[in-house]
Amino acid sequence: MIKIQSLTKRYGELIAADDISFEVNPGEIFGLLGPNGAGKSTTINCLSGLLKPTSGDISINGHAVIGDGVAAKKHLGLVPQDLALYEDLSGRENLNFWGQAYGLSGPALNKRIDQVLAQVGLTDRQKDRVETYSGGMKRRLNFACAILHQPKALLLDEPTVGVDPQSRVHLLNSVRTLKEQGAAVIYTSHYMEEVEQLCDRIAIIDKGAIIAQGSIATLRKQMGEKDLIELKGNFSSIDVEVLKEYDVQEWKDNQVQFWCEHAASKLSEILQLFKDCDIKETSVKQANLESLFIKLTGRALRD
């Protein structure tokens, strides 16, 4: 449904998207996980046809986004990272506006508006001006505007940033509903938990390039079964040799990180090794996407 091949987007020297390729099938949620500035929005904006790629091919439902744009865009819904709403119109008027922009009208449009309002839980507030909405409600409306025309391909660019837990639940459930209805969904986020919960397949993106891609199960294999242990203290008097049994990720005078299987059961044993190091903080990250990201890039996902 969504096909993206060797997408590259340059801004002068900067390569915002670097040879990105993936496919998303109907009824599938594809996660794009990466820190701020990784190139998620750039990828989404090229997909939607807002930005022109420097090179590469993108098609939606078999229609090239550049070249056959009108047909491609008909099947596309976009939830942009930045809100795109008229604050001085009501929620319903905004939906009406965007519905008509996608060619809906009359009773059919009204019915769809009622449906999506119920879906995102804004039926009660539909007549109020958007400027009176909370951040989460605006996000939900922003989402609702993108699904009025029942797109076969839906792009969501960090739809849950700055959203209250209730709105988040609403949004994630709505995305699942769309998937069940057969839409191909791309979901970008820098929230690892969200992506892990929601997505069938994931690409981890950093500095414009995909550094890992696959189903959660595939990525699990890449992560290994190891947990990441992080200690803070004073390690200047001790040699990295003490960790020879482990896979060291980072060794600094005030902080060390290393990988370890079944960390919980071995923690006391490990702390014994460092008993002279004035340990101030201990943390164990269970194998997950975050630890995979650290493993691949040496950096945390959120910094």
Binding site: K74, L85, W98
Partner: peptide, 13 residues
């Protein structure tokens, strides 16, 4: 307010 970019990706732009 984000209307312009979002309209740019509608079919008739």
């Amino acid at each position: 307010n984000g209307i312009l970019p979002r309209l740019a990706v509608t079919p008739h732009g």
